[in-house]
Amino acid sequence: MSLDKKAVRAIAELARIEIPDEDLDHLAGELSGILQFVEQLAEVDTTGIAPMSSVADLTLPLRKDEVTDGGQVAAVLANAPDADDGFFTVPKVVE
């Protein structure tokens, strides 16, 4: 798979990373090179093999449904670049 500028722009949009137009060509080359490298997996026969998402052979442990933490508004907001009156702030999202 070889990616063009348009494809790179679409991926950047999905990843929410602004990329200057002058970087697109270079990135397209790099990402295409990486995809060509990983595409050698196509030669492996994986018929009937289940995907492996984790090596931990565990069933997801469940704990009691009870409150164990909370009430720490100041600690939660302490690292926010902009907080106001107990809330995170964002640019206006509703016109």
Binding site: L14, L27, L31, L35, P51, M52
Partner: peptide, 30 residues
């Protein structure tokens, strides 16, 4: 670069060809 590769291999239309395939090969390696 890695976020963009990851975004691409998980995106609709490419998930099976890349991500799912890699997870299967991972099992063979294990």
């Amino acid at each position: 670069r890695r976020i963009m590769i990851g975004t691409y291999v998980l995106s609709a239309g490419y998930y099976d060809a890349y991500y799912s395939k890699a997870q299967k090969v991972r099992r063979l390696i294990a």
